[in-house]
Design a binder for these strands. Structure first.
Lengths: 130, 130
DNA sequence: GTCCTACTTCAAGTCGACTTGAGGTCAAGT
DNA sequence: ACTTGACCTCAAGTCGACTTGAAGTAGGAC
């Protein structure tokens, strides 16, 4: 019993059928065939969907994910993984700075943000062209 | 000399003219009038564009920004600010966890990710429906 | 007076990741 | 026999934030 129909995949993964069909079309998952008209997937599709969700969460595009899965499902490209970890790291740094500045701006005693030095710094650092 | 034509705003802010017109239409910035056909903006628009860039950076939508600017340009809604800081905080936490897991997966000595406990945990934690 | 350049408007196109809708098929239950 | 419900395909729509393109114009240099 390692084959499950699309309806069951929906029930067990929470991913809508339209998305499953879309993912199949995009080459992220593969059905093993049909039972009547109905798509049948290998049970392993559930793990793959989990993996896809993780990847989407950390900012991979569907194309990137498809490329990764195309190679070897259980042996993802390690360089790609650590590259994405680096990207995340950079983003975390930027966001942390922003969070602190926002926090300050929210608590700043200056009568208006225009007079707050930290707020000014935020504008300069994150302005357009940055 | 506190009025600048759109071309100069483009030069000094790096924001394309099409975007400036779009922002004006959406109510994020306002021109003071025309010189011939050409839009003229108050010099303060440069600071506003910087602010808009900051806000976009931390995830405000144009609608949110427009609403904030509509109240009082130099006295942004502090509750909104700290609310966004909280959102950022949560996102930073999630991303940090992910980064560590990715880092591990990239360095993991297990022959395939399928056999790596940390990788499994990542799948469970960030799977669909999470 | 005419040519260039920087501007204008308005409608439509783009991108990613899906969703929605119309119209059709198949297996099972009554 | 007929209805129900789960599934199918394919085309088109959605959302946010812009960009692109066509067709037109005002102002300044020569």
């Amino acid at each position: 019993m390692d084959e499950i129909a699309i309806g069951e995949v929906v029930r067990r993964s929470g991913v809508p059928a339209s998305t499953l069909r879309y993912y199949e079309e995009r080459g992220l998952i593969a059905s093993t065939g049909r039972r009547g008209l109905t798509r049948v997937f290998p049970a392993s599709v559930l793990g793959q969907l989990a993996l896809i969700a993780v990847c989407r969460n950390v900012g991979f595009s569907l194309d990137e994910i498809a490329r990764m899965l195309a190679r070897d499902v259980s042996n993802l490209d390690r360089a790609m993984l650590s590259g994405k970890a680096d990207e995340l790291d950079a983003m975390i740094t930027r966001m942390t700075v922003m969070r602190d500045r926002l926090r300050h701006a929210a608590a700043c005693p200056a009568p208006s943000h225009a007079e707050c030095p930290a707020f000014q710094r935020m504008l300069r650092e994150a302005g357009p062209g940055a």
